[in-house]
Every structure is written in C-alpha cells, then in structure tokens.
C-alpha cells in the first residue's frame, strides 16, 4: 500500500510533460505551416515569373518592337506590336502629366492645411477608397464622361482613365512624404522670413522629392499594366495612330485580345507582351524600392 503514496510525485511530471509535449508539437506544427505559406508565396512568384519569361522571351525580337500587328496565320510577314508600345507609352505619359500636378497639390493640402479639417478628412477618405476602387468602374465612368459625348473611343479617354487611377495613389504618397519632412526644416525656413508657400515650394518639396518620385514611379508602374479601364476608353487599333482623338493601340488590350484568341501565333505574341509588361513593371518597382530603402538608410 505504500506504492500509491509514492505514485503522485512520479505521475505528475509525466502529465505535465505530456501537455508540454503537445504544446511544443502544436507550436512546431503551426510554425512549420507558417514557413510553408511564406515559401509557397515565394514559389508562386518564381513560378509565374518563370513561366512568363520562358514562354514570352522567345517572342521578343526586333520585329516585335518595330512592326505592326498582322492578322492571325500570316507567319511569312514580320509581326510586332510597335503601335501598342507607342500607345501605352503615350497614354501613360499623358496620364502622369495629368495626375502628378493634381495629386501633388491635393496631397499638399492634405498634409499642410487640411490635417484636422472635415474637408481634408473627407478628401483623404475618398482617396483611400479610390486607391482600391475597381478599375473597370473607372473605365465605365470615363466612357460616360468622354467617349459617349465625343462619339468615339480615343487615346485621350484612355489617358484620362489611367490618370484617375493614378491620382489617389499620388495624392496619398505625396501627403505622407510631405509629412515626413522634419519640423525643424519648416521652422528654419519660416524663421528666415519666408512666406509659408515659399517655404513649401522651395524647401519642403525639395526635401520630399525622392519620396514623392518613388510614389509616382510606383503609380506609373501600376497603371502601365492596367487593362480594364482601357477596354471601353481607348479601345484598341491595329494601325498607327494619327492623333489622340481616335481609338489607340495599347499593350494590355492587345494582350487580352491575343490571349483570348484561338490562334497559336497570336497567343505566342500575347506571351511576349506579358513578358514585356511584367518585366518593365517589376524593374521599375524594384529600382524605386531600392531607392527608397537607400534613402531611409542614409
């Protein structure tokens, strides 16, 4: 009968170690899942980029950049997407020229004057919503705003819809970058007797320049890959454009049409475009990110 008395001290650590072992096992299991998720994400990135590169790189040649598109099946003629490259560059540039001054000035208001006001809070809230708003609805809006009244699809309409997508991004980054400028700089400029607006234009904008450029470049990279807002604004065209007032070729709607077509040579061309767009967007994104990191290290 002395054995049961001796038992409890012997079993208690056993129970404890049993629970402990389970906790450790659960912990290890979750940590493993977490690591797998992260590795999985990286794997997907490499898989997609690898596929796009492998299937797309072979379509990239001199003709790709210099020739006009050809109808499907015409393998004897040189075929390319030169007009779409020019169209995308043109519309993206015009969109940038519209969205950057607009967004920087609006961001200035949010950062400098409208910090506490209801008006500022409303504009900030709407910008945040518009950043993630469905881009296809922006396309519908610009269709109603420009295409329908003017009676035809046009490069202008495409550029405006891209500008509307860039605007909130530029506004919010400008605001954030302006807020990062140290108060001492403002005080120093104001103490020298500079009016507030001069302090902003000559001191604060310069101090925030790198950050704002980064935001702008990221916004450009984003709209360069946009398709949905162009479908009913710039439409598409197999020809060289004469002006911004007519339907304009661009890479993303080309990619859409080619990829959805049943023709093998068009689908090959689509992979080429996918490769070109993805690589351009990634290169711009990576470079601007590196620039931003360098700045924050310095």
């Amino acid at each position: 009968m002395s054995a049961p008395a001796a038992r409890p001290p012997a079993t208690r650590p056993n129970i404890k170690s049993h629970i402990m072992r389970r906790r450790i096992l659960v912990n290890r299991f979750i940590l493993l899942l977490s690591m797998l998720a992260a590795v999985g994400g990286l794997f997907m990135l490499i898989w997609i980029l690898g596929d796009v590169a492998m299937r797309g790189a072979s379509s990239i040649n001199w003709d790709f950049f210099t020739q006009l598109p050809t109808p499907p099946g015409t393998t004897d003629e040189p075929s390319g997407v030169a007009n779409a490259i020019v169209g995308t560059l043109l519309m993206t540039t015009i969109a940038t020229l519209i969205a950057v001054p607009f967004g920087v000035l609006a961001g200035t208001y949010l950062a400098e004057f409208g910090k506490e006001s209801k008006f500022g809070a409303t504009a900030r809230f709407i910008s945040d919503i518009l950043v993630s708003a469905p881009s296809i609805v922006i396309g519908v809006f610009v269709y109603l705003l420009l295409v329908k009244p003017m009676g035809n699809f046009s490069g202008w309409a495409g550029a405006v819809s891209l500008a509307i997508i860039m605007l909130p991004v530029v506004t919010r980054t400008s605001e954030e970058m302006l807020r990062l400028v140290p108060t001492e700089m403002r005080e120093a400029a104001l103490a020298l007797g500079a009016p507030y607006w001069k302090m902003l234009v000559q001191v604060i904008y310069r101090a925030a320049k790198t950050g704002m450029m980064t935001g702008i470049m990221l916004a450009v990279a984003r709209v360069a890959g946009e398709t949905a807002p162009l479908l009913f604004t710039s439409l598409n065209s197999p020809y060289w454009m004469d002006s911004m007032n007519e339907p304009m070729a661009n890479l993303t709607t080309d990619l859409f049409n080619y990829a959805m077509s049943p023709y093998a040579d068009w689908q090959r061309q689509a992979w080429g475009i996918a490769f070109l767009i993805t690589m351009s967007v990634l290169v711009v994104t990576i470079i601007t990110r590196l620039a931003l990191h360098q700045r924050s290290d310095a």
Partner: peptide
C-alpha cells in the same frame, strides 16, 4: 506674403476638393 499664402492654400484646396468632385460626379453619372 499673406496674399501668396492665401492663393497657394486656395489652389491646393481646390485640387483636394477636385477629388471629392470627381468621386461625386462618378456616382451621379453612373
């Protein structure tokens, strides 16, 4: 300097308001 400040503030406020107008136009038009 005061006039400059007022003007600059007014311009930036106009553009910030432009975002609100854009949003309202979008909803009304749709």
């Amino acid at each position: 300097a005061v006039a400059g400040d007022t003007l600059f503030r007014g311009i930036t406020r106009g553009f910030a308001g432009g975002i609100i107008v854009l949003f309202a136009t979008l909803i009304i038009m749709l």
